[in-house]
Simulated scan of single mutants.
Amino acid sequence: MAVNEELDSFLTRVDQVSSLIEALRSPDPEKVQRATERADLLVRGRLAEGAVDEHVECTVAAENRCSVNPRPALPPEAAQQEDFKRQLEADAAERAENRRQAKAESAVWKEKAIQAFREGKYEEALDEYTKALALLKDSCLLYTSRAQTYLKLNRASEALQDLDWALRLDETSLRAWIHKGKAHQQLGQLQLAVQSFEKAIKLHPDNADVVRVYIRDIERARERNAKPADEMHY
């Protein structure tokens, strides 16, 4: 009989602890507070009796570290801010992964475009650069490469559009300024071409000798165009 009573008493205490643990894990601050008080009373009462079971003591102590003396519950506004912060972090991680995948797929199309360009397949290269840009719209390099392809196809106006985008992304891009000069030259806008080349020299003085070659080409073209007029004057 004594054994049964002792077992019943033990099971009752286990039920009490289980109930307390469930309440301590509640999101309701008031319920947690009430459970905390009950847990303190339970432990004090059993200590006074000198009969706190090891199971009860350890279980309540374990929860005590987490919940009996919990950190103060966050006010609703702070809880909302925490939730919003977690959402932002999750969104940032997702966007980073999406960008990583997009860069990888874009790189595949870029390599195909480079190969097609080298083989003189400019229409094919143009299509593949466009697919690469669809996946990675903030690449200065892709815009300048597609612009170069447009120039090979004598589509200077479209090249200029790409070069404007490239320079928005990187206003110091040497390739973009050189190709912009070539595009203006192809359209017969020689003064604008010279201005673009001079901008490239200003930003990249170490490459001045290379860029001046393009300016000299324009100057020679001007001289050739001026000769017939001078001859007619005489």
Rank of each mutant, 00 (worst) to 15 (best):
L167K: 00
D170T: 02
S196Y: 05
A176K: 01
S157P: 06
W177D: 04
Q161T: 13
I201M: 14
T172I: 11
A176I: 00
L163K: 01
A159P: 04
S157K: 10
K182G: 10
Q185N: 12
G181C: 03
R175I: 15
L192M: 14
A156L: 08
W177K: 10
E198W: 15
A176H: 02
G181N: 09
A183D: 10
H184S: 09
W165A: 14
A193G: 12
E158A: 10
T172D: 15
A166I: 02
D170Y: 03
L190W: 05
S196E: 09
L169W: 03
L167M: 07
L163W: 01
K202A: 13
Q186N: 11
H184D: 10
Q191C: 13
S157Q: 15
A193T: 04
Q185R: 11
S196R: 02
E198T: 07
I178T: 06
L192G: 15
F197D: 00
K182D: 09
V194L: 11
Q161I: 11
W177N: 07
L163S: 08
K199Q: 09
S173K: 05
A166L: 04
E171Q: 14
K182P: 05
V194H: 07
S196F: 08
Q185K: 10
L190M: 12
Q189L: 10
L190K: 03
K182F: 10
K180I: 05
S157V: 15
Q189H: 14
D164G: 07
A176E: 04
L174P: 01
Q195K: 10
A193M: 08
L167E: 12
L192W: 03
E158H: 13
L163C: 06
L203R: 12
A156V: 05
D162C: 04
G181V: 04
A193K: 00
L190A: 14
A183Q: 06
L187D: 06
L203T: 04
A159H: 03
Q186C: 08
Q189W: 00
G181F: 06
H179Y: 04
D164R: 02
A159G: 13
Q186W: 00
I201L: 09
F197A: 02
G188I: 08
R175H: 13
K199Y: 08
I178S: 11
H179N: 14
D170C: 01
L167P: 07
W165D: 10
E158V: 07
L187H: 01
Q189P: 11
K182V: 11
A166V: 03
R175E: 13
A193V: 00
E158D: 14
A166K: 04
A183L: 12
H179W: 09
A156H: 06
E171A: 15
G181E: 00
L192I: 04
S157W: 10
D162F: 03
Q185G: 09
A200P: 02
Q185S: 11
Q161P: 03
L187I: 07
L174C: 14
D170Q: 06
A159E: 07
L203S: 11
Q191Y: 04
L160F: 01
W165S: 13
A193P: 00
K199C: 13
L174T: 14
A183K: 00
Q161W: 02
S196K: 03
A166R: 02
R168T: 12
R175T: 15
V194T: 09
